[in-house]
Nucleic acid binder design. Structure first.
Length: 205
DNA sequence: CGGTTTTGACCCGCGC
DNA sequence: GCGCGGGTCAAAACCG
């Protein structure tokens, strides 16, 4: 099967820990990257025989993704724990087809990172167990229903949790460059590992 | 002036 | 049925 289109091609889901910060020096791409999907085999950094959720981290992960039911994971990091429950999967079993969903946690001073796509904010909510607001964005391209949520980790405000939902049905509005290298973006294999360094969202003139 | 952001209201699903 | 929490809508404000 083909891999879904990367909703955020600026991020590459690496499976080793030698990750080079892609977003300036105040950015520490981080501790958590996982895909929440329909239980299929198109995990982002899925290794052989691994569940459809992968973590890039030295932290502890327990993941219960048996069957096609909801995925529950607990990520322990010293004195903090991150829990994720994918409700969409359960809903998808009886209703509409599940949308592709990708979530990851990054250490960044910036709340919103430019991923090359154009987003329009449509909501902001305070959520339980998090003093920080959660922001909701939609892709502003016509006909594109991709959404993303951005919130600061309630347990560690240094981290930003970003969740993408859906697949872009259009090209990236602006090319993305990593240093002198244009990010190799293969629609059919977007989970391939890439070297990321710094980012520029507008092409050199 | 058009696109984006803000923000309160509304809707819906879920648990009790 | 009710309350809670999360997600979305939409009108007004804001901005370039």
């Amino acid at each position: 099967m083909n891999f879904p289109q990367n909703p955020n091609p600026n991020f590459t889901f690496l499976s080793d820990e030698n990750f080079i910060s892609p977003f300036m020096d105040n950015f520490d791409f981080a501790n958590l990257m996982f895909e929440v999907d329909e239980g299929g085999n198109n995990g982002l950094v899925q290794e052989e025989n691994s569940p459809p959720i992968s973590i890039v981290s030295s932290e502890t992960l327990t993941c219960d993704s048996s069957g096609s039911g909801s995925a529950v994971m607990t990520l322990s990091k010293k004195d903090s724990t991150f829990d994720c429950i994918n409700r969409g999967i359960k809903d998808a079993e009886t209703k509409e087809p599940p949308s592709h969903r990708v979530a990851f946690r990054t250490r960044s001073k910036m709340d919103v990172m430019d991923d090359g796509y154009k987003w329009r904010k449509y909501g902001k909510k305070s959520v339980k167990n998090n003093i920080n607001k959660r922001n909701y964005y939609k892709c502003s391209s016509e006909g594109c229903m991709v959404k993303k949520r951005i919130e600061r980790d309630g347990k560690d405000a240094a981290y930003v949790i970003t969740t993408y939902e859906g697949v872009h049905n259009h090209e990236i509005p602006s090319h993305v460059y990593y240093s002198d290298m244009v990010l190799s973006y293969d629609h059919n294999n977007w989970n391939q590992h890439s070297l990321l360094q710094s980012i520029h969202t507008s092409p050199p003139s």
